[in-house]
């Protein structure tokens, strides 16, 4: 696997102006650093794109998918916007809280899971939508949760 900076260099070439590569670069750096962006990751991206770490922080902190705190090995995000909410999203959230022994918005001490709620994932017709490591599970109901968690633990 090529080094982060060389891969960012490639991203950069896609765009007429190199600053446009900052989002893809931050996404990439986040993958490389276990799902979040520690300060050194921001420094890396800054170096590769001739930006300042502070600039990269201002960008990263604007977008929900870019994280500035450590995140569990598995990321579980339940959509609780109106359509999912009407279809029992809160019961799904609580089911995950029970099964994972985690309060939504927190990460397990052993770093295994992070549980959270998110705004509309664009799957309102297939409620409730649950994003697991950014892959969407559709039509999830509270009863499905134990099985899902088991599968994830395995």
């Amino acid at each position: 696997m090529a080094s982060v900076s060389t891969r960012i260099e490639k991203l950069r070439k896609q765009y007429p102006k190199s600053t446009s590569a900052v989002l893809p670069a931050l996404r990439l750096a986040q993958e490389e650093h276990g799902g979040w962006l520690p300060p050194e990751a921001l420094r890396e991206v800054a170096d590769a794109l001739d930006l300042t770490p502070a600039y990269c922080l201002s960008i990263a902190s604007f977008y929900d998918q870019l994280r500035l705190e450590p995140v569990g090995r598995t990321l579980v995000e339940v959509c609780t916007n109106v359509s999912c909410a009407l279809s029992g999203a809160q019961q799904v959230v609580e089911a995950f809280e029970r099964e994972l022994g985690l309060e939504a918005g927190t990460t397990a001490d052993d770093g295994s899971f992070t549980l959270g709620t998110v705004e509309c994932l664009g799957g309102c017709g297939w409620a409730t939508v649950v994003a697991i490591d950014n892959r969407h599970r559709l039509r999830v109901q509270a009863d499905d949760v134990p099985a899902i968690v088991q599968e994830l633990r395995a």
Partner: peptide, 16 residues
């Protein structure tokens, strides 16, 4: 060096 951090009501001025 001096930037805006976060979004919406949680936006704040900061450095790195």
């Amino acid at each position: 060096q001096l930037i805006a951090r976060n979004r919406g009501a949680r936006t704040e001025i900061a450095t790195f």
